[in-house]
Design a protein around this nucleic acid. Structure first.
Lengths: 349, 349
DNA sequence: CGACATTCGTGTAACGATACACACGCTCGC
DNA sequence: GCGAGCGTGTGTATCGTTACACGAATGTCG
């Protein structure tokens, strides 16, 4: 995989010399072919072919032109998890659609959560940024904001100078929570992490003000309203926190909770992935959905239809595309993204 | 998301001027801090802070240094599918691991299958390439080879000057095929596309020499050997081709095949994803796995364990990482990647 | 005390391309 | 017949940084 050493990429001026024209004529042949006569153009292209000139060096071009034709994507969690998280994958697919359309590259930035992330962001050769899964206190936010390049945050928080693409998570959580918790005596929320520490834990009625991830905070707030409306005080509501958006983890935690003296009888999960784990755990212990435990998910992924899950339908793919368009300046002021609640068997008692 | 217009990024020479040192001293402050005295260094950093200088411009740096600190990934199928294909996601995760480690960016190139893909590849500001899901006649291969930058192909084909990371697909297919087809009278292969047209179809005993995707070709060849060893001539073996690696499609096709007068009684699928669709279709029609139909998958994904699928275990994640290391020159000569067959209930009669 | 190594600052010349302005020859239109 | 306008070719300056080589100052050692 190592290229033959010693062969250097020919330059535009070598091509120009060989074609017997000026460097600018050669340059225009690539950037504005119409600007050059047919004869000159063909001589340049012939010379380029003879020399094996692959076209203008993108590095030099991006320096001179000031644009890299590439978008940077900053994924909040360690990259390892990002690709295996189906939500993130849909979101990335949406970005990729727009990028492919406009011939933009899409760079996944090598963020690890370590101290040098700021440097890595500053060193990225990209025209703009899209941020996924950021917390209020994520240092990447201030770094990106300080660069003065266009940037859009998905989900939140609101940062001055950065765009925002999101749904109204609180309203959606309230809507699906009301359905899930209806008639429940021990409602439970299967949640994403509350802060960047990303540890799994089980707490009751957490103060949402301390939750650092805006998406998670808004959803918890909505679920809280729904629970309280059904006469379940928040301080009695159990919130199970999964460190990652993975069904396995939700299954393990749910199994433990079901074994308690006061097992939950309604579980609202923050993703279909987590809900799938919940359902698996319930079935393993010979429980019935929804008779013993009502369950809802979020996203309306393929698995939600398979399992008959009530869920919040949103298109992360569209939201990814919206982010990309916003960064590229194709979408003046992104509107709140649409969502609906899809009611299926998993909440019908 | 649009940055305040008019503010220009300060340059290194402005910082140097403000700090009262030469440009080179300022430059060394960032690239080789040890090379400058503590006093000069702190003056430069102070000046940079006052001016809001975010560090050396990566575009200029990559032009001058000749390296971009970024790897390019070329995904054979249209990007839309790539992210939703769990195999691709694992592979990408492996690349991402290595990139994050070395502070390399990872650019997904905006390949669409259209005519200007070559230009897009040549215009990519990357140090090397990793190619995923390429066919023998993929024009991206020759384009990449002509650039003389390090590149690695996953799965094949073998191209002069490009590295190769793969398992021995033929041997693995033979191994899992022998188990799956044991005692079967109507073996069937659920396959990936045979060529870049990517249409789904159902054929019998295709001439493997005409299959354009090396991975698919090698696996078919292995399955062929396995079927023939069990006394099933290849011309009688049905090969169902799925256009994409998606369970839904496999389910639809399997349902149709099961409704035939001569339904298959053993199905070897080229991925667990496809096998999951196969199992779903069998169960929908009240068939039993493995009693009515033996099934095997490929990859040993999470779903394979869930479904009790016999499968070829390989780590696409490790292979992705291997590709990345090879391109970065950290791995002299990549060895064939390991695989094993995991036998579970789905083939035990 | 002179020879020699080390530390650290600087000037100059690239890296490879493009923006811009200018020059030249032609064709029109009046 | 002459200025305007267009189509084409070219020189120069510059994008922002770093490699390299050189020189001055300081330190070390016999």
């Amino acid at each position: 995989m190592t290229p033959p050493a010693g062969v250097r990429r020919p330059t535009l001026s070598q091509v120009a010399a060989r074609a017997g024209v000026s460097v600018m004529t050669a340059s225009y042949t690539y950037s504005q072919p119409g600007r050059v006569s047919a004869e000159a153009r063909s001589r340049v292209l012939a010379a380029a072919a003879e020399l094996g000139y692959p076209g203008p060096d993108p590095r030099a071009r991006s320096l001179r032109r000031g644009s890299t034709h590439t978008l940077g994507v900053i994924l909040g969690e360690h990259l390892s998890y990002a690709f295996e998280d189906p939500q993130a994958a849909s979101f990335l697919a949406g970005i990729a659609d727009v990028c492919a359309d406009r011939a933009y590259g899409m760079t996944i930035l090598p963020i690890t959560g370590a101290a040098d992330d700021g440097q890595r962001i500053r060193a990225a050769t990209v025209d703009g940024f899209i941020l996924w899964t950021t917390s209020d206190d994520d240092p990447a936010l201030t770094t990106v904001a300080s660069l003065g390049r266009p940037a859009v945050v998905h989900g939140g928080p609101v940062v001055d100078g950065l765009g925002l693409v999101t749904i109204d998570n609180e309203a959606a959580a309230y809507a699906v929570g009301r359905i899930t918790f209806s008639g429940a005596r021990r409602p439970l929320v299967m949640s994403f992490p509350l802060d960047r520490a990303r540890v799994s834990s089980v707490v009751t009625g957490p103060d949402t003000a301390y939750v650092r991830f805006p998406v998670t905070r808004d959803r918890l707030t909505g679920f809280q309203r729904a629970a309280e409306e059904h006469g379940r005080p928040w301080r009695d509501v159990v919130v199970a926190v999964c460190a990652h958006n993975a069904a396995d983890e939700a299954e393990r935690i749910t199994a433990r909770l079901l074994a308690r003296a006061d097992p939950p009888d309604a579980i609202a999960a923050m993703s279909d992935e987590l809900a799938a784990g919940v359902v698996r755990a319930i079935r393993t212990t010979h429980g019935k959905v929804p008779d013993d435990v009502a369950v809802s998910g979020w996203d309306d992924a393929a698995i939600a239809a398979d399992l008959g899950l009530t869920t919040v339908a949103q298109s992360l793919r569209d939201q990814g595309a919206q982010c990309a368009r916003a960064v590229l300046g194709l979408e003046p002021s992104p509107a709140p993204a649409p969502w609906t609640v899809v009611v299926r068997e998993s909440t019908r008692r």
